[in-house]
Design a binder for these strands. Structure first.
Length: 588
RNA sequence: GGUCCCAUAGCUCAGCUGGAUAGAGCAACAGAUUUCUAAUCUGUAGGUCAUAGGUUCGAAUCCUAUUGGGAUCACCA
């Protein structure tokens, strides 16, 4: 629409002898109750024309209509200049943009970005919160890729610490040597089960100690099992063979389980970082900070940074005994990532409960004079809440990722069977379809919401398959493919269609917005923008589909044109859904 | 208490850098299939955009305050 802005600038210059910046022209899509496709708001221009908004609109409209060939008409309503572009303009759009191979393809922009997401703990299976994280991270990475970035998907695995020792300890004590092989249980679930067992035993011991007259706080510290876990952590850090060996074994179980869940979710990674390798990093950065005077040392030897001038607090970056805290590690890991890849931007997909941490982390790196620190971004997303409130592992109020995936597939199966579809599919094809649809519903449900908003998930109220949902969009795609398959091969050459019906024009208009949607989504780090866009495409197509027959079109030219328009719609839907990590089926 | 985030229809959400009578879906009601997939389409009903000020020709959108909800302010990660 740049040509319109230009023409409007010219109009104002010619009519009112005023030079305008392109940014001063306010263009917007015309509301659908009015005639036209693009609207110029005339209010800001009245100070140059010194005339009423209506008169200004009429003058500019008349000028544009004469000046710009593709403008077929205009009307002015309450100071809004609605411009109609000719049907040939829109038809031309379809052929010269939408149907070309490089439509919505961006050239490499020469920038490298890392997206770190997932970052699980290896002591329990993934739950719904992780699912949101994984889907968001994957989708943002895909969207950036589509925008021309070189993308590195990274996963920082939290594979060490007291919580892993808890699982290990409980397994040693109660496990009787059972393994995923011996029980048939998914590895991450098995390990998670022992984590819960640890907690049960721990609570029991606390209660016992309280009966002996200890306070709750004392009891928590003195419980033998927690002391044992702490000892185990020390032995791990000392490199004790037995502990390390068990740790490796159990981690492998977990990775095997995670791998399956990742596969089911359709997410992947280019680079893994393990906290067992990175937890000692960052101490040289602490030295650097001390040297530069960014950090200071307290009498006890602990190292701090004073962020009170920035409206924040004092923050510990190294303990008095010289050991790391979370911040130390993250400083070191940030440096490590940059040393590895020299990326221009680095996105951390982490829940909003860590907003403060990342604010501080980025600020510290800036204060240390790291040039790359300005490319750091915390993609902060809201919690997934249940009707009962927050998910708590220990209270058993988590929605397990694997269970959820299975339930979605099951529901997809039930819905499909109730509709009496795909009876002639093989068992394998059916399974794949149910997975596609179930995951489509789940992924769309989670991604259509603005990442920063909290999300309410009611396990008792199944995710919808109708209306503003993934399956609706998948269905639209399948429907198009079905029609196309009956008419193939479709001619690729341009038809000389002369005029459009409103449904056709509206559909083309929506399709043209795809590239700018991809850009907006990347800038905003928001898959929701793509999700809401592709819904608009599906709706526009369905309306067109319902109003106009494709295969039984009035004449051959119209039929070819509609087939091409349908093919273009299917392609955009497919591509947009892929940005969300959602597959679209050929049939459903 | 300090800081940050959120508040739009009964429910779940859109609403781009301020623009026309605030839009979808679900749920409710009424319709559409001799015709390309009805997981669809059309219509009805449903709103003091949390409240109060301010900036502006114009505010759901920007600013301030208030209310409500959430997060965080650990020598946990």
């Amino acid at each position: 629409m740049d040509f319109l802005t230009e023409a409007a600038v010219k109009a104002v210059k010619t009519l009112y002898q005023t030079d305008l910046n392109a940014a001063d022209v306010s263009l917007q899509p015309t509301r659908k109750e009015f005639e036209g496709q693009v609207t110029i708001v005339t209010f800001p221009l009245t100070k140059f024309s010194r005339k009423s908004p209506e008169q200004t609109g009429n003058e500019i409209g008349a000028f544009l209509e004469k000046e710009v060939e593709v403008i077929s008409g205009f009307n002015v309503i309450k100071g809004f200049l609605n411009i109609s572009l000719s049907d040939s303009y829109w038809i031309n759009k379809l052929y010269t943009e939408i149907l070309t191979d490089n439509f919505a393809e961006f050239k490499p922009n020469g920038k490298k970005v890392m997206v770190e997401y997932s970052s699980p703990n290896t002591n329990k299976p993934l739950h719904l919160g992780h699912v949101r994280n994984n889907l968001l991270g994957y989708s943002v990475a895909e969207i950036l890729k589509a925008n021309g970035y070189e993308v590195i998907k990274a996963n920082l695995v939290n594979d060490r610490g007291i919580h892993i020792c808890k699982s290990m300890l409980a397994w040693l004590r109660f496990g009787n040597g059972e393994t995923p092989e011996s029980t048939g249980e998914k590895g991450d679930h098995l390990v998670g089960r022992y984590y819960v067992l640890f907690d049960k035993e721990y609570k029991k011991q606390i209660e016992a100690l309280k009966l002996e007259g200890h306070t709750e706080e004392e009891a928590k510290k003195r419980a033998p099992i927690i002391k044992e876990a702490q000892e185990m952590l020390l032995r791990w850090e000392a490199g004790d063979q037995d502990v390390i060996s068990l740790w490796k074994t159990m981690n492998l179980w977990v990775y095997d389980g995670f791998g399956k869940t990742y596969k089911a979710l359709g997410v992947d990674f280019d680079q893994f970082y393990y906290e067992s390798n990175t937890y000692l990093l960052g101490k040289d950065i602490v030295d650097e900070g001390l040297q530069k005077g960014v950090f200071f040392k307290k009498e006890d030897g602990s190292v701090w940074i004073d962020l009170t001038p920035d409206g924040l607090d004092e923050k510990l970056v190294l303990r008095a005994d010289g050991t790391s805290v979370y911040m130390t590690q993250d400083l070191g890991t940030a440096q490590l990532k940059y040393d590895d890849f020299q990326m221009d931007e680095s996105i951390y997909v982490v829940g909003n409960e860590q907003d403060y941490h990342f604010k501080v982390l980025f600020l510290i790196l800036q204060k240390l004079g790291k040039q790359w620190a300005k490319g750091l971004y915390h993609l902060s997303y809201g919690m997934v809440d249940l009707p009962s409130g927050k998910m708590k592992s220990r209270e058993g109020t988590v929605v397990d990722a694997d269970d959820l995936i299975n339930e979605m597939e099951q529901t997809a199966k039930e819905v499909t069977e109730a509709l009496g579809k795909v009876v002639e599919y093989s068992e394998e094809e059916k399974q794949h379809l149910y997975h596609t649809i179930g995951m489509g519903a789940l992924k769309y449900f989670l991604l259509k919401v603005d990442p920063k908003k909290r999300l309410l998930f009611d396990p008792n109220e199944s995710v919808d398959f109708q209306g503003h949902t993934g399956p609706f969009i998948q269905y639209t795609h399948a429907r198009i493919r079905s029609v196309l398959s009956k008419a193939e091969p479709i001619e690729s050459k341009k038809t000389n269609l002369q005029s459009l019906f409103p449904e056709e024009r509206d559909l083309i208009l929506v399709l043209t917005q795809f590239p700018e949607t991809i850009s907006l989504a990347a800038e905003g780090h928001s898959p929701a923008i793509v999700a809401n866009y592709v819904y608009e495409v599906a709706k526009a197509f369905n309306k067109f589909y319902h109003e106009k027959s494709i295969l039984q079109a009035e004449d051959e030219i119209t039929k070819q044109f509609r087939l091409q328009l349908s093919a273009a719609s299917a392609r955009v839907i497919n591509k947009a859904m892929r940005l969300l990590g959602i597959e679209v089926p050929e049939r459903m």
